[in-house]
Amino acid sequence: MTMTRTRIALLSAVAAGLVVSGYAFALPEGVDTIQVKAASKDHPLDELYSGWHFRTPETQALQEDDFENPGFLWVEQGVDLWETADGSEGKSCASCHGDAAESMAEAGAAMPKWNEALGKPVNMEQQINLCRSERMGAKPWKWESSELLSMTAFVRNQSRGKPVDVQVDGPMKPWFEKGETLYNTRVGQLDLACSSCHQNYYGQSIRADRLSQGQSNGFPTYRLKWQKLGSLHRRFKGCMSQVRAEPYKVGSDEFLALELYVNWRGQGLPVETPAVRQ
């Protein structure tokens, strides 16, 4: 990646800001840092920043307090659902997985993951629904339903503070490459790729909004705009609609590949679920 002078100036400004600003290190409990160096030299970014950095102090404060953070309303619903038996087998999540704090301590940081039986990767939402249909004999939850969001947020929250660590080699490689291509392909009437904003102009203003790196480590995320928790695929759809493109469907192979690639772009950033964004 060639570094423009603007980018170097921008990065030093960010670095300087981190040192002088009081709230930058007042992180949510269990989160050590929200800014890390890219893991590998061939990473398109030098420094990785959680979307938290690009928000106003009020939005940041909302995430910092586990009581005031409305995303925890969903996490709490997930606590109940974890213990609730459903389907023909009379099982709950806890029947197989026991205490989520132990069994799910790493899972939230490592999705999407290769599924040998299906011959493709699955993300957290898909894995939860696979458990429901195959082990519990229960109906899969609808994408973006309160139940699926709650369970996804609850499970990912168990991995809060753990660095994102997705596998991108072996059978995952073609999916990773597909995701990378999607990320860099211009779409829609505005003719913008993900990279047009989140790679090339993060930290700068798009109208009154501050562009982030488009990191995924806080999903499902409570968005002020949505006034509720929402999935990463919902966010992808929103971005695509806003550049006046025809969005892919939630749970589609395209979004799955994109999720894998975007998660890799945040490799090393701690899981923040449930994050709060604008």
């Binding site: 009581f67 925890f72 309303l73 969903w74 709490e76 619903q77 309160s146 139940e147 709650s150 509720k228």
Partner: peptide, 10 residues
Amino acid sequence: MAKSKPRVKA
């Protein structure tokens, strides 16, 4: 959410 659930911190 399906049903309203209150949270209190006191």
